[in-house]
Amino acid sequence: MIINHPILGPRDSAEFTYMGDAALLDRPDWQAKDALLQFVDYGYLRDNPAGPHIELWYHEQGDRSFLVVTRDTTTHQISSVKLASDVARGRGRSK
């Protein structure tokens, strides 16, 4: 597969390590009242869609960027690639 890195351009996916569903960005607040329940959900349940899947790829053999990739799991076609740090900020993550 080819991942079109937002900074570096098209790169072979073999340079990357797959890190799973990008829902992992939405790490629950560990101080929430129902933190345990939320962490079970966060840690163990997945949408696992047959279709567009938003997922994390780590450019381990490249520039070490985490990317958020939208890829169709039935065709492997990739429709969007973003820097994970940008996406994380967009989802309200900061410090």
Binding site: T17, L25, E60, R93, S94
Partner: peptide
């Protein structure tokens, strides 16, 4: 190292 990069970029990108 991978886990630390995940934490740095994906969990606390503004640290």
């Amino acid at each position: 190292f991978r886990h630390m990069e995940f934490a740095r970029q994906c969990l606390w990108p503004d640290l």
